[in-house]
Design a protein around this nucleic acid. Structure first.
Lengths: 225, 225
DNA sequence: GTAGTGGAAATTGGATCCAATACACAATAT
DNA sequence: ATATTGTGTATTGGATCCAATTTCCACTAC
């Protein structure tokens, strides 16, 4: 193997089913496919110029993740969560993420801290609300990176996927962005001070605060109709 | 609709894909399909007398759950976990299950307590080691039932699915059964006393103790080869 | 007019067929 | 003898075809 070439691992190329799965997941998480939207296999297949087979595989996987719900012979719709379910997801996140950041801060590197700070700054100064969610996620995930617990992160990630589109509403519609900026700064300060307990408690409060703000908004919304 | 008949909801009948998914999951969780076993689509299809299509759907779902791993054009194998991964799963369980039982004990009913006691007794007196795992699970799940947090329970369930076959080894091969009986009695006592904090702490210790015992065993096993 | 029936169109789920890839092993060249 | 190439077989992934179910709407009966 003394051959020098710019190579690409063809074996690692994503399959059509994977591409479709990722595209649908992204669309659901990001909110461009709304709650209750029905997903027609044939329609999606034509969009990607494939047969329905890989589409069906993608939909099966999405259902297993809880992002879509299918009824036999009726089709798949984007899952929607009740207010109670949303609240529970936030509770779950507060439990796991506070533990994750505790472990992460205990052995966090300067490089990670610098990166997290960069995302916090970007988040604080980003005018386009469409990017807030992504930057928010990047900030938190960077702080979690050094926890050495990949399964915990994976579970958190899946939980976040299920509520990301509601979180967007919390940030944009309830002026959550102001508080998020303040609270991010606090979490980052605690992390830089290597104060794991404080970072954990602040993260917990951050998540539960967002939950309260969002559920209040949704309840008011529901009351109006 | 004044017609009185013994009806069955035909729409709720499981699809072939579901049947195969459940059967494979059960076999993996229960241990009859071992780590690294390869799953041939054609073979499974013939066993259930269907084409490979529903088999492929089942395998896709299993992969999404992390129970099997597939390599493009090579096929699916039962996922295996490293000792570190197993340890992390136990840590995760200890975190979530202690919180779940805390909430559950806060508003547990006498009926649930009675049922849990029945399972604890059955577990303690069951001679057939093949049934220990199921009774163990039933005992814990009964105690978790009244927590009012379905998502937490679902996540715990998936985590448990991934390590159930290793847990079996812990119970059977390390005399874990003795300690499990004692610790179950302690957890039950705390629950009956409505002492949520104690139940949570005992559950946490119970899970982490099993983890230590199992990892020690696996490390010794690995050292021997 | 309204409830109920029948059938066409749309859609899903499964079976069958085909292409592409991986693996094993024989054949060949150096 | 060893490394390399070629070939055949097994297996997966996708396309196409078919059956079964739902949905919608026109039609009928009262």
């Amino acid at each position: 193997m003394d051959l020098k070439l710019k190579t690409t691992d063809l074996g690692a190329m994503p399959s059509p089913a994977e591409v479709i799965f990722d595209a649908l997941r992204e669309a659901i998480v990001e909110g461009s496919l709304q709650d209750g939207a029905t997903l027609r296999q044939d329609h999606i297949a034509r969009m990607f110029n494939v047969s329905r087979i890989p589409v069906r595989e993608a939909l099966a996987r999405l259902e297993e993740q809880g992002l879509v719900t299918t009824q036999r012979h009726k089709g798949a719709v984007v899952s929607s969560l009740s207010i109670e379910e949303i609240a529970e997801m936030f509770e779950f996140r507060s439990l796991v993420e506070s533990e994750v950041i505790r472990q992460s801060v205990s052995n966090i590197t300067d490089a990670t801290l610098a990166e997290a700070k960069a995302f916090a700054d970007a988040f604080a100064s980003e005018p386009d609300s469409g990017r807030w969610a992504a930057l928010n996620r990047l900030f938190h995930y960077t702080l979690y990176r050094d926890c050495g617990r990949p399964y915990h992160l994976q579970v958190v990630s899946k939980a976040l996927d299920k509520i990301a589109r509601y979180l967007r509403a919390q940030l944009v519609l309830t002026h959550g962005i102001e508080r998020a900026r303040r609270e991010h700064a606090g979490i980052l300060r605690a992390a830089m001070a290597r104060d794991a307990a404080a970072a954990a408690e602040l993260t917990r409060a951050h998540i539960l605060g967002a939950s309260r703000s969002l559920t209040e908004f949704l309840e008011a919304d529901r009351a109006r109709g």
